[in-house]
C-alpha cells in the first residue's frame, strides 16, 4: 500500500529532536487554530442576542395621571402585557388584611407594591400556570372571587395585588422591574 511505505520512510528519517520540535510547533499551530475558531464563533453567537433596536425598546415610561381609582390599563413592555392598576383603598386593604397562611405563595401585600405608592400595582399580565393573559384589568371583566384577576384558560384567580388564591397557577403574578420617576410617572425596565 502506498501510505504504509511512505509513512515508513517518515519514521526512518525522523530524528528524535526534530520530531519534538515539530510537535511543539504543531501544538502551537493547533492552539492558534482553536483560538481562531472560537474568535470566529463569537460574532455568530452574539448576532442572535437582542440587537440594538430591540434593546432600545427595553424600557417604557407610563404616565399614571389618566388612570383613575379602580381603573387599570395594559401597556406593552418587551412584548409582554403589563397591568397597571390604580387600587382603591378598600381593594388594597382587603389584600393587606389577608392572613398569609391562606395564600398559596405567601408574600405580604406591602412587598408587592412600592413604598408610599401602595395604591399602584404593576404586574406582568401573564398567568403563571401556562402563560395565558388573565382577565380583570378592565372594570367590565370578570375579576374572580378575590377582586383581582381571573384567568379564562384554567380558572386561576388572583387577588388585588396579583397573588394567586386559586389554582392551578402555582405562583403569584410576576412583578416587572420598575421605578417611580415622579408621583405620576413610572419607568418599567
Amino acid at each position: 500500500m502506498a501510505e504504509s511505505s511512505a509513512s515508513a520512510t517518515v519514521a526512518q528519517h525522523g530524528q528524535p529532536d526534530i520530531v519534538s520540535k515539530r510537535d511543539f510547533l504543531k501544538l502551537t499551530l493547533g492552539a492558534g487554530a482553536a483560538i481562531g475558531v472560537c474568535a470566529i464563533a463569537w460574532p455568530f453567537i452574539d448576532s442572535m442576542n437582542p440587537s440594538r433596536d430591540v434593546l432600545a425598546l427595553s424600557s417604557v415610561e407610563v404616565d399614571l395621571t389618566p388612570i383613575t381609582e379602580g381603573m387599570g390599563i395594559t401597556v406593552v413592555w418587551r412584548g409582554k402585557p403589563i397591568f397597571v392598576r390604580h387600587l382603591t383603598t378598600k381593594e388594597y386593604d382587603e389584600a393587606a388584611n389577608t392572613p398569609l397562611n391562606q395564600l398559596i405563595e405567601p408574600i405580604p401585600a406591602a412587598d408587592r407594591v412600592k413604598p408610599n405608592h401602595h395604591q399602584w400595582i404593576i404586574l406582568i399580565g401573564i398567568c403563571t400556570h401556562l402563560g395565558c393573559i388573565p382577565l380583570g384589568n378592565k372594570p367590565t371583566d370578570p375579576r374572580g372571587e378575590w377582586g383581582g384577576w381571573f384567568c379564562p384558560c384554567h380558572g386561576s384567580q388572583y387577588d388585588t395585588v396579583g397573588r394567586v388564591r386559586h389554582g392551578p397557577a402555582p405562583l403569584n403574578l410576576w412583578l416587572p422591574p420598575y421605578a417611580f420617576e415622579s408621583d405620576t410617572k413610572i419607568k418599567i425596565g
Partner: peptide, 20 residues
Amino acid sequence: LFLVLMTGLTYVVKRKVWSD
C-alpha cells in the same frame, strides 16, 4: 496580525512536515 502570525507558523510547520 493574527493571520499573519498563523500564516508564518503554518508555513514553518509545512516545511518541517515536507522535509522528508
